[in-house]
Amino acid sequence: MRIYERLGEGFREGGPDYLPSLAVFHCRWCFPDAERVRAMLPERAAEKALLVRVDCTARIEAEFVAKAFSEGYDGLLVLGCELGECHHLTGNHRALKRFALLRNMLSLLGIYPERLRLMLVPPFDEELVRASISEYVSELGELGSFRYLG
């Protein structure tokens, strides 16, 4: 099957040193600079991460999630403004609801919901953001490859 043919480099069954591939969507109002976002990712994951800047977390549709996984990314991370700080006022409200549902949908379809993470964080607190991301990435490492494990 195709998914097994397309195993990327660094493929392992999972475990602490599995290197997950990440698709990161970041809101342009709180995280405008892709390179700065990349710099906040754990070093090795940063290299193969896909970064996409979006106008609002609400821009991220179910299609993006479906595509990220069907392309074989191990995790999809969204960085956006905290509640109350959205440039479009309530875009992140919608994102929060959509992602709550999507996580459960993934689980029902056989994909670990932990692979999808929405972080509504204060962008100036780089240390916090960095720590949350690195926790997320190590969780992903534990889950292992999406192509292989679900």
Partner: peptide, 15 residues
């Protein structure tokens, strides 16, 4: 269709 694209997209649109 590649998993999970088609069916996840349709399912979400109808959620």
């Amino acid at each position: 269709p590649e998993y999970p694209s088609f069916h996840l997209i349709r399912a979400f649109h109808l959620a």
